[in-house]
């Protein structure tokens, strides 16, 4: 399972980087989303994946059996990261929309007016 997920993350990263390097701004933004998800999966993978139960303390017990649960913290981290990337996604799409209204272009090469010469 780890191997499959690792390869999958690798493919996501490759696709994300490919999209980020495209000329169209929309594709760059899609690439950002793909990269964000690949990063979330990395946290998930690094936290250790195994077939196991929830991290709840069973009724009448003081502690939880570590062998039967999976670490809940990476999941909490991913949840935070997903929320943050959702906010950013909404913002970046709005920005793109506004940019298109002002300049009527999708082309990243048109963004050269603020560059250094």
């Amino acid at each position: 399972m780890e191997l499959i997920l690792a390869i999958f993350i690798g493919i996501l990263y490759a696709g994300g980087v490919y999209l980020v390097l495209r000329r169209s701004i929309v594709k760059v933004i899609l690439g950002i989303f793909v990269l964000a998800n690949a990063t979330n999966l990395i946290i998930f993978l690094a936290g250790g994946i195994k077939r196991s139960g929830e991290a709840f303390i069973a009724e009448g017990k003081e502690t939880v059996d570590l062998a039967t649960i999976s670490d809940p913290l990476p999941q909490a981290l991913i949840l935070t990261a997903i929320v943050i990337s959702l906010g950013i996604a909404a913002y970046i799409l709005a920005l793109k929309y506004r940019y298109f209204e002002v300049t009527e272009t999708h082309d990243l090469d048109q963004l050269s007016k603020t560059d250094q010469k």
């Binding site: 950013i88 793109k96 300049t103 603020t114």
Partner: peptide, 13 residues
């Protein structure tokens, strides 16, 4: 807007 697209993308990365 141009500046912010550059700023945004690189900072997100």
């Amino acid at each position: 807007l141009e500046g912010s697209i550059k700023y945004l993308i690189l900072n997100l990365i």
